[in-house]
Amino acid sequence: MEKNSQPVIEVRGLDVGYDDDIVMQGLNFKVNKGDIFIVMGMSGCGKSTLLKAMIGLQQPFKGQVLYDGKDFWLDAEQQSIMQRFGVLYQSGALWSSLTLAENVALSLQLYTKLSREQIREVVALKLSLVGLEGYEDLYPFEISGGMRKRAGLARAIALDPDIIFFDEPSAGLDPVNAKMLDDLILQLRDVLGATIVVVTHELASIFAIGNNSIFLDADTKTMIASGSPKDLLADSKDPRVIQFLTRGNKPGA
């Protein structure tokens, strides 16, 4: 099998939800290497639930999530697949009892054979990549929300992951910090060659960084559009997609 032709992530016939409630069903899409793939839709439509099924936090009801062709939920090496990705959570989700440096260092301590000194240098590098050099010894509660997100990103990229997931990266950030995070995402894709999946409803980010996307709809409980966000805006005939991408201006109104 050729490496280039195979998508990094492939989702096939996925049904996700909580307890007995199906939130989204019949999801099919592929994410290629180097993509910045946007999962968009209205608040509460099931974007985060889909993300949880993709990163191993919530078992899907049906269907497959494939990483390089390996079925994630059936794979015995599920944990080793998980070590390939970094996740930036909506709240940052930094470990509150650890300093920023310890937050970033933990995965290095667990999964690499680097010496203490080397780890310190890698941590300093990752923190400086997100503009937080000099903040090593602070605890998460001592820094601002925007900084917490960036520290979360430094932690997510600690092991140079192939795939980085972002859950609502710009939520709770001011426009300047949101833009800065978008630029960081683009740089990470270029520098690390990472594949990036972003769950968001922030229009500015969607158009600034996304080169592929799917649109989830809560009423029909499935994806109703896919493609590059700019193409969707130009070509989509679906009023729900157009309404979303144009901030609520109904087509033809």
């Binding site: 990163i55 191993g56 936090l57 944990q79 080793s80 998980m82 070590q83 990705f85 996740v87 959570y89 909506q90 709240s91 989700a93 930094l94 470990w95 509150s96 933990l106 995965s107 667990l110 999964y111 932690r155």
Partner: peptide, 17 residues
Amino acid sequence: GIMQVNEEIDAYKTLGV
């Protein structure tokens, strides 16, 4: 419990911990 609320436990899980 607070770690669960703050998604800190999720963050451990997705690190493979």
